[in-house]
Design a protein around this nucleic acid. Structure first.
Ligand code: MN
Ligand code: MN
Ligand code: ZN
Ligand code: ZN
Lengths: 156, 156
DNA sequence: CGCAGTATTGCACGGTGTTGCAACAGCGGG
DNA sequence: CCCGCTGTTGCAACACCGTGCAATACTGCG
């Protein structure tokens, strides 16, 4: 079969650039490339959008059953510092990670239907600029999560 | 001694009106006035500002060592429905209760120094109005907590 | 004052993270 | 290829809450 030969020869199974360079970026900071971090990177590279912390732990465990939660959470902290993920909190306070955030944005959460939407920086500009000018406060937009009722759920 | 007679005669030790009427408000809804709820009310009446959930549990335990956390949290849910407390989440996701919120407001949290400030409705008006008009989304301001760096901490 | 009906409690357990610490293992250098 | 320095891991324990369920106890009523 040619399938096997092809898979052996393939350089990388189409991993987006940011993930490919993680190893170098870690080492450049004196940090290390470990099997546990590799598993998490693989999981993240195969995911998109928003995922909760415990869901990521589960997915890592699916790859390596020996996975331990604290290691995953600590690795996520490191990746957040590299800007590869960002987290905010759902209405119940649970962490939600956003993978490869393209641009800083907040999140909208409907209390009733539990759906979430992204809140582009533009729609929060008045708040962030206002707080900056009035108080010198610099809002961390990516951590902002706004709860309330969506249009649909207000019909009740 | 007159002290004893005085304390017996005293109508109420200056409990603000809202707390005095809790019992009636509960009963009006078919809910009950229990010793556990009374302890929490006493604790709340003696507190002001913002307190975390676990801190309230501790204070209740100081009054009644038999206090059980789940009961306190469930009682807080009830009181929140009555509008006597409201909660938001700190940067770490922990609950912070605001006692007798006079007016709806959000909270500002500095990630570095851990201080918090109130965010009056006016300062968030553009956001809430904007989301209302653009998306029909009705923001729950009291649950909103905005993280970032305060003016002081930006000098770093 | 005792009853019945229903709200509430306590308990035990599960979920989601966080932290201190000793053992371990990348990784650069000899 | 082995050493040693440090960054990491795994473990165990802890913190903060939520939930299902059976036992309990408010409350209004007779
Ligand atoms: Mn909440
Ligand atoms: Mn957070
Ligand atoms: Zn909704
Ligand atoms: Zn600060």
């Amino acid at each position: 079969m040619t399938a096997r030969a092809a898979s052996e020869r393939a350089p990388q199974p189409a991993e987006p650039a940011p993930w490919a360079s993680v190893r170098e970026r870690l080492r450049a900071r004196g940090l290390r490339w470990t099997p546990q971090r590799r598993v998490l990177i693989d999981v993240l590279a195969a995911s998109t959008g928003h995922v909760t912390g415990s869901e990521l732990v589960d997915r890592c465990r699916a790859v390596d059953p020996a996975t331990v939660p604290s290691t995953v959470y600590r690795a996520l902290d490191v990746l957040e510092e590299l800007g590869l993920v960002s987290h905010s909190h759902g209405h119940d306070g649970r962490e939600e990670f956003h993978i490869l955030p393209d641009a800083a944005h907040g999140h909208l959460h409907c209390t009733r239907c539990r759906r979430t939407w992204e809140l582009p920086a533009g729609e929060a500009a008045e708040l962030t600029i206002g707080l900056h000018d009035a108080r010198g406060f610099s809002v961390d937009l990516s951590h902002l999560s706004v709860g309330g009722l969506c249009a649909d759920c207000r019909g009740a």
